[in-house]
């Protein structure tokens, strides 16, 4: 498919809402195979940055380049390559898991039933595929949401606090899935305030505080101490 890319470059992106600055001249680059953890306390601007990467939020200044081309050159086609999983599920509770997945597959131009079947299988809910989603537990819904976000095999995978409300087993599953994605050549961004979950999963860490990029470095053992200090300063 056209418009594919293997790196994402955030170039001097700022975004403010009136007097509140959500992002302040952030620059960073992520390449295929990396899992970039966006770490920072609540309200640090992580979600805004994820929104900018997803083309849902327009930066006040600066730009994001997908494989060296800016958004306006790529057009709607670009969104074929972006998958977003947020804390909100992006699913219709009135519809069944199968209906939800079929609908979103359709939006991406994927008609084949196997795609939906495989996603249901991965989510581990084949036997309850036709129940309304509102009957599911938070963990089950989150698994469906994960499959929904990845239906169209996006190149750029954006996770915004994907672990909230999940039990340990579900967290493990999501984490495994993330590793597989990265190994397959995806670019993964994961925003979280929870260091324990990010630790050992991310390959790079970008620390964000009050909209500013405080550091951007490979994940290492020192991460924990640095993060703690950062949160204390905030």
């Amino acid at each position: 498919m056209s418009g594919d890319f293997d790196s994402v470059r955030v170039v001097g992106v700022s975004r403010h809402f009136g007097r509140r600055r959500a992002l302040s001249t952030i620059s960073l680059t992520a390449r295929s195979g990396e899992i970039v953890g966006l770490l920072g306390p609540n309200g640090a601007g992580k979600s805004t940055l994820i929104g900018v990467l997803a083309t849902l939020v327009a930066p006040s200044s600066g730009e994001v380049r997908y494989g060296d081309r800016p958004v306006r050159e790529l057009g709607p086609e670009l969104r074929h390559h972006i998958g977003l999983l947020a804390h909100e599920l992006h699913l219709y509770p009135e519809l069944s898991a199968r209906q939800n997945l079929t609908f979103f597959a359709g939006l991406y131009g994927l008609d084949r039933q196997e795609i939906v079947d495989r996603a249901l299988e991965r989510a581990g809910i084949v036997d309850r595929a036709d129940d309304p989603l509102s009957n599911f537990s938070r963990g089950m819904r989150q698994r469906v949401a994960l499959e929904r976000a990845l239906l169209h095999r996006p190149r750029l995978v954006l996770f915004d606090e994907p672990f909230t409300g999940l039990d340990d087993q579900a967290v493990g599953l999501v984490a495994d899935r993330l590793r597989v994605l990265a190994a397959d050549g995806c670019i993964v961004f994961m925003a979280t305030h929870d260091l324990d979950l990010a630790d050992g999963l991310v390959t790079r860490v970008a620390l964000v505080r009050s909209g500013k990029l405080v550091s951007d470095e490979p994940a290492d053992a020192d991460l924990r101490a640095r993060y703690r200090e950062l949160v204390r300063q905030a």
Partner: peptide, 9 residues
């Protein structure tokens, strides 16, 4: 003025 405030932060 807003820009200046933002600068300050």
């Amino acid at each position: 003025l807003d820009a200046l405030y933002l600068e300050q932060e």
